Computed example of a mutant assay.
Amino acid sequence: MRPVGKLIIIGGAVNKGSFAETDYDQNIEKNLNFFETGILRKIITESKNKENSIIEVVTTASQIPQIVGTEYKKAFEFLGAKNVNILDISNREQANSDAIVARANAADVVMFTGGDQLRLTSILGGTRFHDTILLKYTEQDFIYSGTSAGAAAASENMIYQGSSTEAMLKGEIKITQGLGLIDNVIVDTHFVQRGRMGRLFQAVVNNPRTLGIGLGEDTGLFIHNDTMTAVGSGLVILVDGRFIKDTNLTNINLGEPISIDNMVVHVMSMNDTYDLKTKDLTIVNSQYSSSIQN
């Protein structure tokens, strides 16, 4: 069944965040980047009640939850949001509590911050809070948004470990279950800046049905009705393994380099769309579209 809700997953902020700058109050306009002015605004405009939506900023993945939570609260409120709360769930008992479930049920948006995606899934996975989020996303006009760890954890399976430099050595990439909001994809973040192409290559060659999604910083995807739309100032990289012709994956030992023949890679930028059903990419500013129509 196609979910009623929407996903907005983000590759991470360009830096710690413009709302952490010391001159926040004096020169706020100079501090803003597209992460605030575009992507966070997109969350508000796509939410059920716009500026009046109840937004819960979930800081579970972070080791500095109050600092990170306050930063996002300031950012959303600067953009006009009136009901922004910080939800710091630090253990599974909290995630199963009536109070936390009630807040999840009341929310129009949950925004998962960056940090450690394994911390996020190990605390929230299989709890009443997790079940509530999944049900709301499936059945209601509800937004799950996540940046960095929050984005990586959105899919059924997620990368939680693996260095960029050794990513194409068999066994170097570690994958576990995510929060399960979207199937048949795997998401990596800070993608261009940290050179993580090899991590997605290995994740996809392990199961070519999986679409690899690499999100650059200050960049995200808006996913609704089986369509992914790129938002932000950077790039989204898609790795499609369906047409792989050959690999040495099962004939090499752990730690040896992987060979792949005919891996397909797409690059998306602002407003480009990708249909998850037909597997078609549409480039909005295509240099060929006018000649095709003529």
Rank of each mutant, 00 (worst) to 15 (best):
Q94I: 15
K277P: 00
A102S: 13
F201D: 04
M228K: 04
G178H: 07
S286W: 11
L32E: 15
E217F: 02
H266Q: 05
E21Q: 14
K245G: 05
S269K: 13
S47M: 04
L249S: 09
Y144E: 06
I43S: 05
R128Y: 03
T127V: 13
I173M: 00
I9H: 12
Q161I: 00
A149S: 11
R242H: 08
I173Q: 05
L87V: 06
L221K: 08
Q140R: 01
T247I: 08
L134I: 15
K50S: 11
T22I: 03
V205S: 02
I67R: 15
Q293Y: 13
Q287A: 04
K48H: 03
I159W: 03
G150W: 07
S233K: 13
T127I: 12
V205Y: 02
I182S: 04
D226Q: 12
V4F: 03
M111R: 01
G17T: 10
V58S: 08
K170L: 15
K136G: 12
R103F: 06
A99R: 10
Y137D: 04
A106F: 01
G150V: 01
M268K: 07
Y72I: 07
D261E: 15
S291N: 09
D261H: 08
M197P: 00
N225L: 04
F129Y: 15
V110C: 12
I260A: 05
S289C: 08
S62Y: 07
V231D: 00
Q26H: 06
M228P: 01
S290D: 15
G212C: 13
N253W: 05
D261G: 02
T282E: 12
G69D: 13
A61Y: 08
I8L: 14
Y288V: 14
F243M: 06
A152Y: 03
R196P: 01
A61G: 08
G171A: 11
N15C: 03
D141T: 02
E71T: 09
R242W: 00
K174V: 00
R103K: 15
I123Q: 11
I67E: 15
E77L: 02
D240N: 15
Q117A: 07
S122T: 15
N31C: 11
L135Q: 15
I86S: 10
Y274D: 03
D141F: 00
E93T: 14
I252C: 11
I283K: 14
A13K: 14
L79M: 10
V264F: 12
T219H: 09
T247R: 06
S269L: 01
Q26W: 02
V284M: 07
G232K: 12
R194S: 05
Y160V: 12
V185K: 14
T147K: 08
Q161N: 13
